[in-house]
Amino acid sequence: MLVRRTIPLLITFVVGAVLILSKLFPVTSSLGEEFSIFFDIIAVFAFILGGGNLVKIHGNKIYRRVPGWGYSLVCLIGFFATLSIGMFKTGTGLAGVERWAAPPTYSGGHFNGIYEYIFKPLAATMFALLAFYVASASYRAFRAKNLEATVLLVAAFIILLGRTFIGTWISFWAGPESGYTLPDLAEWIMNYPNLAGQRAIMIGIALGIVSTSLKIILGIDRGYMGTDAE
């Protein structure tokens, strides 16, 4: 109980309280920075666990020939290939100490090639899926079911048109400089009704963060430890 409950709670309390108080005392003002560096260091070691977990799970799948084990094989090959190419800096033409000291992104290395020609296109592709999903989600979600939904629908149309040059083009009732075109309306919606809502949500979130932090520092919320047992 002492090791699993009391000591972690004590560490949380001390670190939290010290960081809050450090704001008040200039001598300790760099503590926040120091602690975040410590966090980075711990996170780096935790990666060994993460990487290990990845290898274990996919290795198991391949070993037990579960359906789809081929994908796990591709995953592991990719993992080890990238890891070793980055570690041994193949393609950089370096040797000895120079090789070990060079960063993985060293000029001409295969690691750069992997980044440039595999990683970048894949990440961009995943992100580009968003365009398709926005279309299918709005097809489902924007239905004029009631008054509120209708207001939302109209606002969505104004923003969609106002965010392109077509908005200015079809604003036949006003000249481009008049301040009443669709882009201007879109801007107004963003600047006033939307901004008011955003601010309210942000204030709520800020207070939520304060109270969650206090609960954690004071050891009231122990949900993140899995149980409420004293």
């Binding site: 711990i42 996170a43 935790a46 990666f47 060994i48 666990l49 993460g50 990487g51 977990n53 949900g223 993140y224 430890m225 899995g226 149980t227 047992a229």
Partner: peptide, 18 residues
Amino acid sequence: KSLVMTTGRETVKEAFLS
């Protein structure tokens, strides 16, 4: 994130235990 994994594991383990 690896740290989320380790924390999450402890949490879930404790939850199953309790």
